[in-house]
Amino acid sequence: MAAVDETVPLTRKDYSSDQEVRWCPGCGDYSVLAAVQSLMPDLGVRPENIVFVSGIGCSSRFPYYMNTYGVHSIHGRAPAVATGIAVARPDLDVWVITGDGDGLSIGGNHLIHALRRNVNLTILMFNNQIYGLTKGQYSPTSEQGKITKSTPFGSIDYPFNPLSLAIGAEATFVARTHDMDRKHMQETFRRAHAHKGAAFVEIYQNCNVFNDGAFEEILQKDKRDSMLVSLKQGEPIIFGDDLEMGVALNEYGEAHVVRIADVGAESILVHDEHRTDPAIAFSLSRLAERPTTPTPVGVFRDIERPVYEQEVTAQLARAQERSGPGDLRKLIESGNTWEVA
């Protein structure tokens, strides 16, 4: 086995493969890749103990650019492949890279089941609200009325809200970030990675070729203060150019945007990502119907629940404790046996 000197600190280079990155120039995927590669040395996991698993789509090329183990699987199945890896080897650090088409359309079933099982996966979902690799069809997160090659008269599909879906699927960690802010991405990814169980991160990612500017109304530099609602644990949810805006709950317990001056600072919702009940996190995930009005970013939900593959392993250990290690002879000869001379 190749000798590894574990005392030498690792750098971004150690986690970057020698493959030429082949996204379109200007694609938001580049900044996500850079954020992940440069975060890696900080996470303290050696490259050989990491596996990146992806499905199909532009973002799913991601594993090729990481100098870790990687599987570029088939369309939509990454959460299932990753579950198999995690169940077989709970010692590994497993990441899933998916997109809005891969994760929410063809692979929706696997995504929700990985979340409810709480498999220890860090799931990064690149949401660009379009099919890029197949050259520009509407996706399950595209807005209604979207004109694309497959919807020349406008899309009539009602879109998914990925975070609402994840919370509905019993996800234990749900967060959102965007490709324009490396620091915010890294902080979010770090939290997601530290979470024990399935961590779901939606990344608003610009596809400058087929859906340029999908998030510009909230992500343009001069708009961020008034449009991005940053969620911070234990702090009142406030935003705005002069921090004059906030989020409060109405009489039905629904989150809505308020002017602090109108309701008083004491009415502003204090963010608590650890609430077991998902109602407020769910409501926050729906604060903006589309990313055109004030939109929360950060960690929505972070709760503890037993981790799937650890439970699998625990059952194995209990079975061994109870019945001792498997004895093949005993197994085969169980039941009535008889001898023929």
Binding site: Y69, I74, A80, V81, G84, I85, A88, H110
Partner: peptide, 9 residues
């Protein structure tokens, strides 16, 4: 897909 993941691992 899970079986494939397990074999990869």
């Amino acid at each position: 897909s899970m079986a494939i993941g397990a074999s990869f691992a």
